[in-house]
Structures are given as structure tokens and as C-alpha cells.
Design a protein around this nucleic acid. Structure first.
Lengths: 333, 333
DNA sequence: CTGCAAACCGCAACCGGTTGCAGTGAAAGG
DNA sequence: CCTTTCACTGCAACCGGTTGCGGTTTGCAG
């Protein structure tokens, strides 16, 4: 026979019933079986190179020791960092993460969500939330353990781990006004996402009155470039731009070049996230650093807590951010 | 009762046996049941919002409709692209990809491999192969369907999809010699990986005789910087550098700056992969473009073929590469 | 009207584990 | 020496599907 050995094979070899073998193999229940017997079972398992069938186990325990992770866009360098954080925090727990990429598409997100659900994941880490998110509502209705990540919903249905976006914006605006800028603009992220809305709100509050805000359709270079063009058409007098995130900043940088504006000499630029490689640009981008690895780790830990003892209150974690000043900001001429 | 509905619930509601319900629900077998009955079952399923339990299905069919994907380092921007290619190719097939990040660590790779195996994945896409790879050998011994991706093993155990590295190197070297460079160096990737070895071999063959080759310990910025320092200490006369990949090129670029050498005025630099963001550097990096999305898609298709009809011969796909000339290369002074 | 095949559906086993419950035997206590 | 207790292990049901096989019904030809 060629098939991989089952617990029945192990039991036969050890001369015990498969129930006993099961108990011997499981650290949690191995106390229920005689030490000598347990040893025999362990040996038999090793001899056969037995690997428990996770699928069968999941079916009978109705737990899968996996958690689903919904990521909006893996090609954005900040998400791989979050994933690493998640994996690192999950590591010792025995849980494994199943990643799903949603492409920022709610339809696709639901499809992947259902796929993971039918695999009976024990919980979800969701980094794709919109402020009003059907998926999140569904998860809540089903009573699933969930932790939101990076983006939150307006309805506080679940615990959420984010950066302190308002503080980040405040620091960035403070840095720019401190340099002497008076005409500052914000290229805000999509208002349907909490990050976009929160950062824009903070900007409106802390920037000089009347500072223009232009919305980007997405957190992408193209959307950022489009918004930057609209901005510069309307308000060619701005001396500093705070971008909703680094991708938007990249788009803005393109547009500045394309219009012959020098950064930072003519226009200062601040990003958000401190994603990989922005320190290698010319000029190196001044940006708000977000601890993405920790973000992922913290969220995973919260989820593990929730899996251990369900019914905990939904506490929110807000991680401190700090501004990284590089070459893309300077005093206005 | 609060638990999600099972097929038994659907069957009861439709007034049939669960076997009939099962057949009605499965497109492949729905021909075996009366059309009217099938409709009743479908309606019942919809009314209950029935979602089949993939775990149970996997257990009885011994197939999981999932494939495992082993990725060496998600934070390197080329791999997310590959993943997207895989997902796009898998999309219509009904298979889903389970991603695992190995951090370039063979131990970790085996751990993740075992985890996926115990989840009964139907096959593997492996992008982590070393030239001698225990994991790949194990997979082969177990008779698993596998396709290697990007990196190959010395032993051709499985089909493999790579870029035509030798042609890429030839193009790069040709470009440099065409510009007039005579003292060209190669910062080669780790020799334990096929990409490192193949590119170095091609370089030795096509570069001017005696051209220096310095090995990098890893495909990372730091390893690239270290190698660049060794190179420039030994051979300060080189006028052009071909890096084993873009990360290494980034490290080399740092070192050039740190030594006051201008790129491309003093030293020309060519990367490999054309990974995201290297066109945004200053100078924009000349590099060999690798179609990563297609690489992933092609590999996924090959694996699907293999799953459809096993026992096919292991055919190798080598995708054409082309050089993208940007600002980091120029004629020597 | 009978016979037979085809269409349809139900029965029950099975996938490989887990776990409540009961049975066995030996040790401990009276 | 008998009873009680306890540690240990086996029995069998169960998780939620799939599928080979056999039984029943229906339709149609002879």
C-alpha cells in the first residue's frame, strides 16, 4: 500500500486501539494513557513517519487551527510586512495563516472570504475593511472571531489595530508649518476607507484654514498623479503637499517632475506609511512611519486572545507613529 | 440551532436523501438526478444559505482543491507579482492557492511544506528551490504534483518555469560592451540557487575574459553592498557592474554613493528582474525585465495540467527576457 | 400483458481523525 | 478477603460530505 499511514496503522503497529493512539499523540490528552503505551505509540508513529491528517481532525473538532487573512493588495510593500508580523506572532501558537489577496475589490473579497470560511478557518484578520463593509457585517452576524487591521469600520463591530493616523498627520503638518509653509495641500486617500477619512479630517483640523484637499480615487500611483494634476491646476500656489500615502506621493512626484517643479525646492512633499524603497528615491521621501510589522503582530495576538476566550470586549489598539524627515521637505523659497 | 446548515438539512427540506442532495448540488453529477428534484434541492440550499463544508468534502474525496505555494520572501516585490499571476491563472479552475512564506530558510520551508501537506493540498508551486533541495526531493519521492518556479534544481525532477537567464545576461553584457565598457564586473547571486549559478555562468562566458565575479551571500541589499565593497576594493578600475538582481543592485548603488562614485558617469549599473520601483530611482535602473506575472501564471497552468492528467513528462518552460535601458548605464568616460 | 432497460433515488460504507462512556484490572482501603 | 477507587484502554458514535451498489419506478417495445 502506497497511501500515507493513518492513525489506524499506527495503532495496529503499537498494538492498541486507535482511540488510544489518538490520545497518546495529542499532548493535551497524553496524560490519559500509560507512559509506556504512549512511548510505544510515539515510536510506531515515528517508524511509519505518521503525519496526522489535518483535514480529518478539522472535521471532527470543527476547528482548523488556521486563520484567514484578507489583504487588499499584496504588491503594495507595506502588506508583506504586515504579513510577516502576523506570521511571527502566530508562529508558536500552532495556528497558520491562510492569505488571500483581494485586489481592493469587495466582490473578490467576499469570494475569498467564502472560500476561507468553507475551509473552516477559526478566525479572520481583515485588512481590507471599508468604512461600511458588508463583509465585516456578515462576519459579525456569523459570530466569527475577527480583528481588523490598519483600516477600521465606522461601526466598531470588532477590535481593530491601526496606527494613530491623526497624530501622524499632526506631526507632518507641524513639520511643514514649522518650515514656514503656509499653503499646504492634502491629496487624501479614498474617503470610503477609514485611513483616507481620518487623515483628511485631521488635516482639515490642523492645517491652516482653507487648505485645499483633493481626493484620490485609490491608493495608487495613478490616482495620486491624477489628483496632483487637479490640485496643481487649481492651486498652483501651494508650496507643500501631504499625500494620503506613499503610493499617492509617488504619483505626485511624477507630476511635479512632469511640470518642471523641483522637489523640495519648489514644492515639499510628505508621504504616509514609510513603505519600503521610499528612502531610495531622489529626493528621499519625508514620510510618516507606520510600524507595519508590529501592526500585524499585534492584530494576530489580539485574535489569538479572542480565540482563547471568546466574548471579550472589542478593544482598539492605536500604535504611535512618527515622522521621518528626509530630503523631500524644505523651507519654501 | 445556530450551526451552519449541512447537506442533511438541505436534503430534509427538499424531501430527499442526502446522497441525492449531494448529487444535485454537484454539477458533475447533477445529471444523475431528475431535473425537478434538482431544482428543489437547489432552492432548499439557497433558502438555507447552504455552504458546503470543504473540509468534509476533502476528507471523503481526498482532494482539497487547493495548491500550496512556497515563496522565499514576500517582501521582495517580484514575488507578489508572481502570486498575482498564479491567482489569475488559478481563478477559473476552482483551485485556491495557499501561500507560505519561507524567509529563505530551508527549515522553515520544510515546516510550512509539512503544514500544507497535512492540509492535503493537491500540489505545490515551489519558488524556493535551491539547486540541491531536500524539500523538492521529498516531494518527488511522495509523488506529489509539483512545478518549480523561477529557481530550478540541478536534478530535473519536476517541470520548471523560469526566465531565460542566460539570454538576459547576454543582452546586458552586450549592452555594456556596446557602450564601450571593457572592465565589467558581476555581483553574482548565491551560487546555491540556480539563478545565481546560471547568471554567473553566462556572465563568465560572454563577458570579456578575466572579468571579475564577486558572490553575494544572499539576494539582499546588504549582501549586495558587502559584495560591492569587496569588488571596489579589489578592482577600482571597473567601469560597469552587472548585479545578480535588483536588490543587489540597490546595495551596489548605495556603495557607489558612499564612495563618491557617480552612476552612470563613473560606473554603469545593470540590475536583474525589473522589480517594482527601480524605475523611480535616480538614476532609473537599467535592468533585465522578467515577466513575473506570466511566470506565475504559466507555472500554475502547468500544475493544473499535471493535476488533470498525471504522469506527463516534465517539460520546462523558459520565458524570454529583455533588457530595459534606463538611466544607470552610459558610455565610460 | 409481460419483460426489460433506463432513469432515478436511497442505503450504507467510507474518508481519518476525536471523544463520551463504559469496561477491565489492579491497587488501596476496610 | 471483599469492596471501592482509579488509572488505563477499548467501543462506537460522530463530524459532513461522497459514491458504489442495489432497489423501485417508469416507459416502451415485443
Amino acid at each position: 500500500m502506497d497511501k500515507p499511514p493513518t492513525i489506524a496503522d499506527v495503532a495496529k503497529l503499537a498494538g492498541v486501539h486507535k482511540a488510544t493512539a489518538s490520545r497518546a499523540l495529542n499532548p493535551r490528552t497524553s496524560g490519559q494513557v500509560n507512559a509506556a503505551t504512549a512511548r510505544r505509540v510515539l515510536q510506531a508513529a515515528k517508524r511509519l513517519n505518521y503525519q496526522p491528517n489535518t483535514v480529518a481532525r478539522s472535521l471532527s473538532t470543527n476547528r482548523s487551527a488556521t486563520i484567514g487573512v484578507l489583504i487588499p493588495d499584496l504588491t503594495n510593500p507595506l502588506f508583506p510586512l504586515i504579513v510577516r508580523g502576523i506570521e511571527d506572532a502566530l508562529g508558536p501558537s500552532g495556528y497558520t495563516a491562510l492569505l488571500a489577496n483581494t485586489d481592493n475589490d469587495p466582490e473578490r473579497a467576499e469570494a475569498r472570504f467564502d472560500a476561507l470560511l468553507s475551509r473552516r478557518v477559526d478566525g479572520f484578520l481583515i485588512a481590507t475593511a471599508r468604512r461600511e463593509d458588508r463583509l465585516v457585517v456578515r462576519a459579525h452576524e456569523q459570530g466569527l472571531p475577527v480583528v481588523l487591521l490598519n483600516r477600521s469600520t465606522d461601526d466598531p463591530l470588532f477590535p481593530v489595530v491601526t496606527g494613530d493616523d491623526a497624530a501622524g498627520v499632526t506631526a507632518a503638518v507641524g513639520h511643514l508649518t514649522g518650515l514656514g509653509h503656509e499653503r499646504i495641500a492634502h491629496l487624501s486617500g479614498p474617503p470610503a476607507m477609514s485611513t483616507g477619512a481620518v487623515r483628511a479630517r485631521a488635516f482639515r483640523q490642523f492645517a491652516p484654514a482653507g487648505s485645499p484637499v483633493v481626493e484620490c480615487a485609490a491608493y495608487s500611483e495613478d490616482a495620486g498623479a491624477a489628483a496632483a494634476r487637479r490640485l496643481l491646476d487649481e492651486r498652483p500656489d501651494v508650496t507643500a503637499i501631504l499625500a494620503g500615502n506613499d503610493m499617492i506621493a509617488l504619483g505626485a512626484l511624477q507630476v511635479l517632475r512632469e511640470r518642471g517643479l523641483r522637489c523640495p525646492d519648489d514644492v515639499s512633499l510628505v508621504g504616509f506609511n514609510d513603505m519600503r524603497f521610499v528612502d531610495q528615491l531622489v529626493p528621499p521621501l519625508t514620510t510618516v512611519h507606520v510600524p507595519h510589522h508590529r501592526l500585524g503582530a499585534e492584530a494576530a495576538r489580539l485574535l489569538l486572545d479572542q480565540l482563547d476566550r471568546p466574548g471579550e470586549p472589542a478593544k482598539t489598539v492605536s500604535l504611535p507613529l512618527h515622522l521621518v524627515v528626509r530630503g523631500s521637505t524644505a523651507a519654501p523659497r
